[in-house]
Write a protein that binds this DNA or RNA. Structure first.
Lengths: 225, 225
DNA sequence: GCCGCTTAGTGTTGACCTGACCATAAGAGG
DNA sequence: CCTCTTATGGTCAGGTCAACACTAAGCGGC
């Protein structure tokens, strides 16, 4: 247990969002998975899934692998959120050394939620209601929510919550759940199509008790990276 | 030189922007300061100012102090940019251990440029022309430029390049330099004032050979953080 | 088959924003 | 007084957006 000088150590954590109906209101809402801490500091509290950065893994790969290992999730969208490194963030007075966290945020489809429940130590919570988390994770969740709500307005990420083919009504429901307000179906459709991010598949949904909605898919951008 | 296991170490670097006339065209352009590396890897190459994260400093404070120490600069605006941590970013085959950099970006006024030139090992370069930097710093500079050019369109950061009191023509010149295009003075004025970010000081500039322009100041936002 | 219900999708309209451009204001210098 | 310069205000055509009326196309009941 050779301890060098008070070195800073690096962890990678991820805020994963999925959409599910709210337990009381029934309206679509953002949920996120948390894992229970099984050691000090903050033993027994809920925290974001994460772990130390492995020396041979890139940052995003580390987020992905840690997430897979601790929650079983493999999200469709993953992006760096922010790095948190306040001196006292691990706990006000601790001698475990200082931890800097590079935090990612991710989006996943609701099917993943079922697969992810891993017994006692992983649980999903309504994103807007979480509080009392370990470390500064309350603040991180808030920050991730703000980023998601901002980014959905100018980028096509909403489709990461949907299946490969989706109706515009489904896409609109994602926006409504994330932004917390309703959108006019007609206007939403116009803007979604005008953005050029989506294209019709030619298929449509059968068996509805009304006019069958057309199916769309995300159109990968033309960028030649 | 007791080397523990292949631990990852943490550095903080900063991309600092200032505006100065372009050496050949004379048009206002973005510049940034670089420091020459005085050890391997990349000895002799230019690199972003930065240094290891001190265990008792917050991330932003570390950026600020390292910047002050290496270049003498104390920017007016400082914000986290991104964290870079590819496994091979230090150099493809090195045994100095892996370095993860948390990079900040900063804006400063042109007066600072004069104060900052520190002899041989600090020099300012035209931001769009830098290349051949150490590590992945070319890519980081590009990323910072993109962020600056995006953010200036929806936030009042342009004022960080100006004095405390400035004319709308000066503010417009900042936008033109950063975005690389011209703006109609009348339209720019309307939008700047409609944004609510700026307010007239009541004073104006005397001694111009034309109608004296009014002076404005940045109006700190009402947010009760 | 016809009616009523539901959601899909189209059209219209007025408020607002934007960019291009014209006009006037207010200084300096001849 | 005339000219030149930039500041600042006005106008107008085109585009975007939200509200809302309307048509399309499925279902089930009768």
């Amino acid at each position: 247990m050779l301890q060098t000088d008070q070195k800073v150590s690096l962890a990678v954590s991820t805020v994963v969002f999925a959409l599910r109906p709210h337990p009381t209101t029934g309206r679509m809402t953002l949920w996120l998975p948390l894992v229970r801490r099984i050691r000090e500091p903050y033993e027994g509290r809920w925290a974001l899934p994460g772990g130390p950065l492995e020396p041979d893994e890139d940052l995003a790969a580390s987020a992905q692998h840690t997430l897979e290992r601790t929650t079983g999730l493999t999200p469709r969208y993953l992006e760096q959120l922010y790095s948190f490194g306040a001196v006292d963030r691990s706990s006000v007075a601790d001698r475990d050394g200082r931890v800097v966290s590079i935090v990612y945020w991710a989006l996943t489809r609701p099917e993943e939620m079922a697969r992810a429940i891993d017994g006692e130590n992983v649980e999903w919570f309504v994103a807007d209601d979480v509080s009392g988390l370990a470390f500064d994770h309350d603040q991180i969740v808030r920050y991730a929510l703000d980023r998601l709500r901002a980014k959905i307005t100018y980028s096509p990420i909403a489709h990461a919550f949907c299946d490969d083919e989706f109706t515009l009504a489904e896409l609109r429901e994602v926006h409504e759940a994330v932004r917390g307000c309703r959108f006019d179906p007609a206007n939403f459709r116009r803007q979604a199509l005008a953005s050029g991010w989506f294209e019709p598949t030619g298929r449509s949904v059968q068996g509805t008790s009304h006019r069958p909605p057309a199916l769309y898919r995300f159109r990968p951008s033309e960028e030649t990276s």
